[in-house]
Design a protein around this nucleic acid. Structure first.
Lengths: 400, 400
DNA sequence: ATTACCCTTGACACCGGTGTCCAGATATGG
DNA sequence: CCATATCTGGACACCGGTGTCAAGGGTAAT
């Protein structure tokens, strides 16, 4: 054996009964090890033996160490190893160190499935959404995954079909079947009032994302869409616009409601009346933005500025304006909402409202796992996030 | 009790020992049920009792039925229930029907964690990627989830940091820790040659996505980027262009290599020489597209058409052209690659190459789970997908 | 010195499924 | 009518962890 003899110092005892209780190479090898007093610097030999044992496996791999192996090697019971793993306070420091060393040396990792079964709960976090906005979903995912990185949690994504009548049943079965640790629900699904009760009953932690405070701080991470929209419209007013059109979002979306209310709020503040005809319905899609803006352009006099409730529709406005030969921002100012990458890919780049999607995703994840692990840090994650106006090139004072 | 007496016909026997072996309400209730002969039309009462039992739970919910409960109710052993669940052939049809009815009536669902532990394998599919292209990742996810819908599989997403030196270790630990059923790996990570061996050793099924056939049909789903790029360039040549610039993708991306080779192939076919200066390096980003096109515009004579290796860069070309006051497509034709939503949001809409991302994701997922469940349908999923040229408004004959 | 108590650790059952192996029932042949 | 082959279904161990409870050893108090 290549390893120097400083690695193994003393053979204390051998447990023959156990030696014969297993037949696979890996366990025998580790069994022998369990009787060896481990001196410092044994890391090499441990790794070596473990690797050799693995090599003997017929399956070719995944000959994972179990808690029993670690217990044998440390000369303690599996429960003690379990205590080390779970940072139980009632444990001698000396014992803890010894076991931790073995764990570190062998690279042992507890089997998540076994833990899940014993605990009745998984280390999986579900991301549930019915959102048509890919960009938003992905940013959210990114934020959540950032927060989960380095933890034992994994993210399971679960889109649901809002069309099917059994959305709630789907979610419920997902949550209970997989014994999820918790779920993060994205809008517009998250705006459903039945959700809290349903998830509570299922005994599932949850955090809802949204554009307004629909729930308490423990279960909600929200942006303040109303104020943000108002801020955007105030910017238009500040530039001198007073004929401002709105392209609203689809009915049933809370964000659409909030943004519209912010729009109306800002106009009311400035004492600007809003003719019904200045509000066009949109569906948060590029095409609906085009269609809606056609309606606004047809007015006489037409608006000098348009606030679209999301960027896709704002891009539609821009597209429609170009088709009509209107110069943006000279003849028409446009503001969008969301700050998607699209805003900088079009010409002129769109002034828009940025809400911190990824940061909110991160906060949601931390909120969820914080309720379990980091309870000590009482610095609760914020739950209301502010948006900011990003000024680009699509707003200018009215030409007249 | 509201239910009519047709629901319960005969009380056969009671097992008092068992009755006292459990204390929770749900189990007691079901215990009592186990002694009742179930007549047709008992669905209602079963649901009722189960619901009542659930209500008695202190936890408020998740008082799940276990295989033991079903076994009691059916008057068979748990192993028999297990056989029913797993469609074991060595089982009497009569017994099977009886158990299946109970399962259907109670809505029993086996605990995935317990199965995972016993089987040593999870019903989870991992999606591993290091891709900066959000749109692509999401489309892929969509396709995969479509294929997984209705199955017992769930999707676990796992982005890895290509920057960190331990990418392979990360993947390996992810795969072995979670005992994943299999993984789908997205480019450019999927192009790594070490991957197959690594995953094989880990005993993990895998399917790689890519832009060329890097692996056998069982482990690969690929698009044919080279031919698609050539086709796009042929379109430009067919329009009369012969001074065609290329904005290449980043080194190390197989797709960049394939697309470039397709570009060169088409030019060579047509006998068009390619000056080195007509090839500009890009990074697949909007900004790099702008920068690269500036280099091409500075040539004299400049190219009359540009093939950008993805849509982001093509949009950059368009942006740069506008800044220079060049008309597209009159003074410059542009073709992109990927057919992202961006292509229709800009003006003019970009001619581009569409590859069936979602369909490929679906195929990858089916390939993965097909190796286990649907082996009988020998109609293997296709593994090489063709792309098509989408003609929009950014290509026209050269002006001169 | 003896009892009381606390701290540390271990034995054992359990989570909810699956694999193995064998017993009992049924069908078939002599 | 009995012996043997075949089919069904059950008992039991096991997967790899965790919770419960009690035993063992050490120290402090009487």
């Amino acid at each position: 054996m290549a390893a120097g003899d400083d690695t193994v110092t003393t053979i204390l005892s051998i447990d023959p009964a156990w030696m014969h209780s297993r037949v696979t190479g890996v366990n025998s090898a580790i069994g022998a090890l369990s009787c060896i007093h481990i001196a410092s610097g044994t890391l090499g030999i441990l790794r070596y033996i473990v690797r050799m044992a693995k090599g003997h496996q017929d399956e070719g791999a995944s000959a994972k160490l179990t808690i029993n192996d670690i217990a044998r090697m440390a000369g303690v019971s599996k429960k003690t190893v379990s205590r080390v793993i779970n940072r139980s306070p009632l444990l001698n420091q000396e014992t803890r160190d010894k076991v931790e060393k073995i764990i570190a040396d062998t690279g042992y990792v507890p089997n998540p499935q076994a833990r899940a079964l014993a605990l009745g709960r998984n280390f999986l976090i579900g991301l549930v959404f019915d959102n048509p906005n890919a960009q938003m979903v992905l940013s959210m995912q990114k934020g959540i995954l950032e927060a989960l990185h380095g933890t034992e949690f994994e993210l399971v994504v679960r889109p649901v079909d809002r069309g099917s009548g059994s959305v709630m049943e789907d979610i419920l079965s997902f949550v209970t079947r997989q014994r999820l640790f918790g779920v993060i629900v994205l809008p517009p699904l998250s705006e459903n009032d039945m959700l809290p009760q349903l998830l509570d009953e299922a005994g599932c932690r949850y955090v809802r994302m949204g554009s307004a405070l629909l729930d308490d701080a423990e279960h909600m991470v929200a942006s303040n869409d109303r104020d943000a929209a108002a801020e955007a419209v105030r910017h238009l007013i500040g530039q001198g616009h007073h004929r401002i059109g709105l392209i609203a979002g689809p009915h049933g979306f809370r964000s659409a409601k909030e943004r519209r209310e912010g729009f109306e709020m800002a106009l009311a503040e400035a004492g600007i009346s809003l003719p019904r005809s200045f509000v066009a319905d949109g569906q948060y899609t590029f095409e609906s933005g085009i269609a809606a803006s056609e309606n606004l352009f047809a007015l006489s006099p037409p608006p000098t500025a348009i606030f679209a409730c999301n960027d896709e529709m704002a891009a539609g406005v821009l597209y429609a304006a170009r088709l009509r030969g209107m110069d943006v921002p000279e003849q028409l100012s446009i503001i969008g909402f969301d700050d998607t990458p699209l805003t900088t890919r079009v010409w002129p780049p769109l002034t828009t409202v940025r809400w911190p999607i990824a940061a909110m995703g991160r906060a949601a994840a931390l909120k969820l796992i914080g309720t379990a692990i980091g309870e000590e840090s009482e610095v609760s994650e914020p739950y209301l996030f502010n948006s900011i106006l990003i000024r680009r090139g699509s707003v200018a004072p009215p030409s007249s």
